[in-house]
């Protein structure tokens, strides 16, 4: 088999990078929430699906192209996240990890079942932006290319926000020492609302783009959240960039394992990678040593 041809290797690499950047967009939000609030949001992937379903509804009932609906869906989910943080998540911040796990697990169950009630368990998808760009021997999926590039742009934009802006610095300050941040005049609760809203909005953006790549149903989230957990542990718990690297790494490794081994191994590779990284670097690629 002519697997080692440069075009095939390049093809695998591109596929991996594109899938990986979508993982990265999803996982870095999850990790941001964990970093700032020490809350693992089990419902994170459900917010991705919320974004996907909103985009689907907009497409089916108002004929809005998913790329346009990003501008509606992302702010809407941001708002939902803002309110949910204030009304529910805020009450479990600072409690033992199990409490917040249970709370977000509850949110996840409610969202999945609401999804089943409203949309049934049928698989939805939006047939837009289909096909591929063909360059010689190379074929690059259009929806994946757009999704991958947008995912990188969005993740990078959030990263710049965290690094450069005053508000972003405040978010990082809260992540490191919430008590100290509060005596620096930072309204920690507002920062947490912002963080949570931002993270679920990122997930929703990933979901909107997912509609053009994959068929989803209300319980599709489970597959994604498992990968996200692996990614944030690989990348380092609580580290925004770590999750980004972890996501891209996983995407590429999956593609190559799928190419040289089987797609089934590719599914398991997240966990093998996890064990491997933890053996070499117990705190993950960019781990925080101080997280218990």
């Amino acid at each position: 088999m002519a697997l080692f041809e440069p075009t095939i290797l390049l093809q695998l690499l591109i596929a991996g990078l594109l899938t990986g950047s979508l993982y990265a967009l999803l996982a870095s939000g999850l990790n941001l929430v964990f970093g700032v609030m020490r809350v693992i949001n089990i419902a994170h992937a459900e917010f991705m699906l919320l974004g996907a379903y909103l985009a689907w509804v907009l497409y089916v009932y108002a004929n809005v192209h998913p790329l346009l609906s990003l501008f509606i869906v992302v702010p809407a989910v941001f708002g939902i996240g803002w309110v949910l943080e204030r009304t529910l998540i805020e009450h479990v911040v600072g409690r033992p990890l199990l409490t917040s796990l249970l709370a977000t697990y509850g949110v996840s169950i409610i969202m999945v079942n609401a999804g089943l009630l409203v949309f049934a368990s049928d698989f939805k998808s939006v047939p837009q932006l289909q096909g591929a760009i063909v360059i010689g021997e190379l074929a690059i999926s259009k929806p994946r290319l757009v999704a991958g590039v947008l995912a990188v742009i969005l993740t990078f934009a959030v990263y710049l926000f965290l690094e450069i802006t005053r508000l972003g610095k405040a978010v990082r300050a809260v992540a490191e020492h919430p008590h100290v941040a509060t005596i620096c005049g930072i309204d920690v609760q507002r920062i947490r609302m912002l963080t949570f809203a931002l993270a679920v909005a990122m997930a929703a953006a990933a979901g909107v783009m997912l509609t053009m790549i994959y068929s989803f149903s209300p319980d599709t989230g489970a597959d994604f959240i498992q990968k996200c957990f692996a990614i944030i542990i690989i990348g380092g718990m609580g580290n925004f960039l770590g999750a980004f690297y972890g996501g891209v790494l996983l995407g590429v490794v999956e593609a190559f394992v799928g190419g040289f081994g089987t797609t089934q191994w590719a599914e398991a590779v997240a966990y093998l990678l996890l064990v491997l990284v933890l053996l070499i670097r117990p705190t993950g690629l960019k781990g925080m040593a101080d997280v218990k």
């Binding site: 695998l12 190559f256 797609t263 398991a268």
Partner: peptide
């Protein structure tokens, strides 16, 4: 003849191999 995981969303690697066959 290849099995894939329940959560598989990316078949491009599989398809590349198939194209060769």
């Amino acid at each position: 003849d290849e099995e894939y995981g329940k959560a598989s969303t990316d078949f491009s690697s599989m398809i590349l191999k198939m194209k060769a066959i």
